[in-house]
Design a binder for these strands. Structure first.
Length: 466
RNA sequence: UCCUCCUUAGUUCAGUUGGUAGAACGGCGGACUGUUAAUCCGUAUGUCGCUGGUCCGAGUCCAGUAGGAGGAGCCA
């Protein structure tokens, strides 16, 4: 009597008919037949579909089986047989049903078998993983995460766990969460009345990281090809479908890569992980297509089949100006592209993913490499039809004098970046990288409209209950 | 942070010019059935987000407040 998962039976087809097996999981729903048996749909999370157990009324605890409702936990032992009914290949002909946990009050159990809105499910973040929707989304998320690691490992990138706590108050990418062990009711003060951070845990101000990029550049300067993949924190008061206070980000960084190498890497990576989802999570995608987004599979297939278009920012501005299209924001060289502009380029002009390169220096970060024109930097964004910016990256400024000049322009104190500058003092090398917002990737793949529904426990302003 | 909208049964929602609350699904009981979002019949559901105001009377109008959603900004 071997214990098998529903995926062993339904996806991997590892269990031949006639096998004696045990399935352990939860009830999706129960249907009774007065012909003398009940059907139990049992899921264990290993794949989308449940296994149908056929339970005869001759079991000694059949009275109890009739009380099973959505969400009850069970262990079913029996024989796997070819199903006599339509809709599934196998039945588990049960000869023993062990009831583990009942639903205390089925009438008020928040996860009924019927459809719930994503907003409702968010209020029950501890129970929503039991639903079809979150089940499918989370298996796809897991698939994407593992595919990202596989892709980079296959290209000889080393995974670097960059720190989550930082004392650089200068990472410069938005508001940061403070990390402290000081007693906020009784803060130690210096002689001139300011907070005395020398008494704090790290002896100075500390924050949650907003990016691993600066750290991972140090490792790329030794291991050539590296990537970070982990959580990131932004204390910005933004309430949108695309923002979280705690989210996951993947940031590859490679020595000897220029901007074109960087863009090519991004294209290979996205196609690799999309192909992985199509191959490994077909069951979940079928559900997504049926219930969330009809085009989910088609979108991935078209993305994989497409060649990325490439265009310079300056040329993109021309395209937008000459398009005759009416935008809410007027198009002018020097401005950042609005999402309406990004969508126009990808969806209406190129009809494919597009890499926009070489942005004006004034709208980009200090570490991006200055181009010879003195006006633009070697930055690139990957814009995808249907979502807009999915990746942002750049070639980094490897020349110390240029880096110092840029920091001076942006009024940044070089002392705060002493170790980052050291990379340019000792064996400096051309290098590039990009950042991929992992939840935004999950949103793109699943068609779910909100990053809060593709992360297990979303943290947003005024919401960190679970 | 700004703008707009929403908050009514376990869930999804309806509720007209202001007159003491409805449907579907789910739950429960029954019938029927190799069922599969089963079907059919019956049945119980409620601090109408919260606080105050107008009014003889407020789910409905007004003010405040909390939470949620969408958009903008910022970004990933």
């Amino acid at each position: 009597m071997s214990i098998v998962s529903t995926a062993d039976i339904l996806v991997k087809d590892k269990v031949p008919a006639g096998s004696r097996i045990t399935v352990r999981g939860w009830i999706r729903n129960r249907r009774d037949s007065k012909a003398g048996f009940s059907f139990l749909s049992v899921y264990d999370g290993s794949c989308f579909n449940p296994v149908q157990a056929v339970v005869p009324n001759t079991l000694e605890n059949y009275d109890e089986v009739l009380k099973l409702t959505t969400g009850c936990s069970v262990i079913v032992e029996g024989t796997l047989v070819l199903s006599e009914g339509k809709g599934q290949k196998y039945d588990l002909k049960a000869d023993k049903v062990t009831i583990c946990g009942m639903i205390e009050d089925p009438d008020t159990y928040p996860m009924s078998a019927k459809r719930h809105s994503p907003e409702y499910l968010r209020e029950y973040a501890h129970l929503r993983p039991r639903t079809n929707l979150i089940g499918a989304v989370m298996r796809i998320r897991n698939c994407l995460a593992m595919a990202i690691h596989r892709f980079f490992q296959s290209e000889e990138f080393m995974w670097v766990s960059t720190p989550l706590i930082t004392t650089s108050d200068c990472e410069g990418a938005g508001e940061m969460f403070r990390v402290t062990t000081l007693d906020l009711e009784n803060v130690p003060k210096t002689a001139d009345g300011k907070v005395d951070y020398t008494k704090d845990f790290f002896g100075k101000e500390a924050f949650m990281t907003v990016s691993g990029q600066l750290n991972v550049e140090t490792y790329a300067s030794a291991f050539s090809k590296c990537y970070t993949f982990g959580p990131t924190f932004r204390a910005e008061n933004s309430n949108t479908t695309r923002h979280l206070a705690e989210f996951w980000m993947c940031e590859p960084e490679a020595a000897f890569f220029d901007l074109d190498d960087d863009a090519a890497l991004a294209e290979r990576m996205l196609k690799y992980v999309f192909r992985a989802v199509l191959e490994e999570r077909h069951d979940d995608l079928e559900f997504i297509v049926q219930r969330v987004d009809k085009d989910a599979i088609g979108r991935l297939e078209r993305f994989i089949a497409s060649d990325f278009a490439q265009i310079d920012y300056t040329d993109a501005i021309d395209v937008l100006k000459k398009s005759g299209h009416k935008f809410n924001f007027d198009v002018e060289w020097g401005m950042d592209l609005q999402s309406e502009h990004e969508r126009f380029l990808a969806e209406e002009h190129f009809h494919s993913p597009v890499v926009v390169k070489n942005y004006p220096k004034d709208i980009k970060a200090f570490y991006m490499r200055m181009n010879d024109d003195g006006k633009t930097v070697a930055a690139m964004d990957v814009l995808a039809p249907g979502i807009g910016e999915i990746i942002g990256g750049s070639q980094r400024e490897e020349r110390l004098d240029m880096l110092d000049k840029r920091m001076a322009e942006m009024k940044l104190d070089p002392k705060n970046y002493w170790w980052y500058r050291d990379l340019r003092r000792y064996g400096s090398v051309v290098h590039s990288g990009f950042g991929l917002g992992f939840e935004r990737l999950c949103v793109y793949v699943t068609g779910v409209g909100n990053v809060r529904d593709v992360i297990p426990f979303p943290r947003t302003p005024k919401n960190a209950m679970f």
